[in-house]
């Protein structure tokens, strides 16, 4: 995988402030990518299963998942992804403000690939997003999705 390949990212986040902030951080991180947005858990799963209006959309290379979501929360979404043989290879980075221990343990139990606390400081957030990008797209060798 090369650095100038377009990377498909699915951002599952309901708070527009956070959506924009993540976008800005990805932009400043100069990661070549295309970000799709799902605003709740149901939408996220529809996107991943390419159902309805999402028919024909590509499978993402990385999922950035917020835990507290309307309709279906992040934990359920994570569980469904990891149970689905088609989807389970996609790395999921859980992004949340919750540092509660049981949340962390629960998400690792559900095979989250990484758990990241959203920093209050933008500079730090920038670093985090950049390092996530670097890690998943430069360091780790991902299995090639069936779609590609």
């Amino acid at each position: 995988m090369t650095n100038n390949k377009q990377v498909e990212i699915l951002l599952v986040e309901d708070n527009p402030g956070d959506v924009r902030l993540t976008m800005e951080a990805l932009k400043e991180g100069k990661l070549l990518n295309r970000v799709s947005l799902a605003e709740d858990g149901v939408e996220a799963l529809a996107f991943l299963h390419q159902e309805g209006k999402y028919a024909g959309r590509p499978r993402p290379d990385l999922i950035l998942l917020d835990l507290n979501l309307p309709k279906k929360d992040g934990r359920e979404v994570l569980a469904e992804i990891k149970e689905d043989p088609e989807l389970r290879h996609i790395p999921v980075v859980v992004l949340t403000t919750s540092t509660a221990e049981h949340d962390v343990l629960k998400t690792y139990d559900l095979h989250a690939n990484c758990y990241i606390n959203k920093p209050v400081d933008f500079e730090q957030f920038l670093k985090v997003v950049k390092s996530v990008g670097d890690f998943w797209f430069s360091v780790v060798i991902l299995p090639c999705g069936k779609t590609r």
Binding site: G17, D18, L21, T97, K118, V120, D121, F122, E123
Partner: peptide
């Protein structure tokens, strides 16, 4: 987080 991130 919103306040501080966006002011930054």
């Amino acid at each position: 987080r919103m306040v501080s991130s966006y002011t930054q």
